[in-house]
Design a protein around this nucleic acid. Structure first.
Lengths: 219, 219
DNA sequence: CCTAGTTTCAAACGCTTGTTTGTGTCAATC
DNA sequence: GATTGACACAAACAAGCGTTTGAAACTAGG
């Protein structure tokens, strides 16, 4: 959307495969599906259809690739979240209801991962990055935290009776609910005997938002 | 369960260090704190204070060790969950309230991990095992799902107006809330400026149960 | 056509991985 | 006291890892 790859797939106008993007896509998918350290660069580059040395040429190292993947995802996600929150605030002419705030928090994460057709899921990757990533990645994660402060503020305004401490905890739990939209979905499918599937992501997202909203407004 | 370790902890009567248990403890801690594939057997055996070859001697392989760690944890956790659920049902003389059911689901997982002093946390490990584990581990995980059916049943009885599909989804979300008690706590601590800490695990657990209960009883 | 710069590629580098081997040690059995 | 089986240990194994190399293959400007 910024400068590169006007087409999502093999560009018809431009025959160039855009190696860098191919690597990022494959890395995002594989790192999320498995884990950072269990995916070898040989497997990754084979999946991306590029040469083994391309990763070190374009990114410098495997760690730097992880950072690049995260950065690309975090920027896009945070931008969309901020946009939705701003829109909700304008729509409400002040403090929006809890549900709208949580929708701005949750919906982009799901929509972004499903809409682009990427199976790789951002939050699962975050967990991996947090525990396995290089030091520089830790800083990036801390920076990423700061953008959540806007949501804390909005939620505290929407629920003025709630102690500040409680706002933080419930936001944390809500992110746990969001997280469950990425992980262990196969367990849910097994448990429900195929009744529940992530197929209808719109409905799935609505359910999660309903659940988190009720949890937030408890008491 | 066949022959070894009649005592759960370090045998007091016997000065023997019990290598097998030492390995299991270290593996549980390290696999959960980082990830399965990022922990080498050299690091693991060094942390456990045993010889490198001990893992392959006692368990056969690194994969088999992962299976053993999971099995030990799953058995203990499921037993405690089932016990609490049964007690709640007896106490209520039938169908217990949602809150008591969720407490039986959530509390043991937290208490078990904190009470034993193990920093390693069961659910975080489960996620790793699910994506990285050997095929045999997948079967174990499927078996582990079946014990959740008891909770589905109890919750469906407690909320007869709720469609079956919704029960599954909300249980899934509740497990997401539980999951958040294990992961990303450092993010919460950063976000809240040190206001929220997992220090008081009792209060933390209560908060999570409150949140999940409200989410379950929505509408 | 030549040149300069960028990107691709096969091959190899050093190193770490999980696993195996052979020997040593200790305790119990006969 | 010799024998047996279980376990600990250091050393080595092949395989795979991330990374580097140097030379081809390309693109574009003069």
């Amino acid at each position: 959307m910024t400068d590169t790859a006007p087409e999502g797939d093999g560009g018809p106008t431009d025959g160039r495969p855009d190696t860098k993007e191919l690597i990022l896509d494959a890395a995002e998918r594989l790192f999320a599906a498995r884990s950072y350290s269990s995916v070898s660069l040989r497997e990754l580059t084979a999946a991306a259809g590029v040469n083994l040395a391309a990763v070190n040429y374009h990114f410098g190292s495997k760690d730097a690739l992880l950072t690049a993947v995260f950065k690309r995802g975090a920027v896009a996600l945070n931008r969309e979240r901020a946009r939705l929150l701003r829109e909700a605030e304008e729509r409400a002419g002040g403090t929006p209801p809890v549900r709208d705030i949580l929708e701005a928090l949750i919906a982009p994460a799901v929509r972004w991962s499903v809409g682009t057709g990427r199976l790789a899921l951002y939050n699962q990757f975050t967990a991996v990055a947090r525990t396995e990533g290089p030091p520089e990645m830790r800083e990036l994660l801390e920076k990423d935290v700061s953008h959540l402060q806007r949501f804390v503020l909005a939620l505290a305004r929407a629920l003025p009776h709630l102690p500040q401490e409680e706002v933080y905890w419930r936001l944390h739990f809500s992110l746990g609910v969001l997280h469950s939209l990425y992980t262990d979905l196969s367990r849910l499918e097994t448990l429900s005997g195929g009744l529940c599937t992530p197929e209808d992501s719109e409905a799935m997202t609505r359910r999660a938002i309903d659940f988190a909203t009720a949890g937030f407004e408890a008491r």
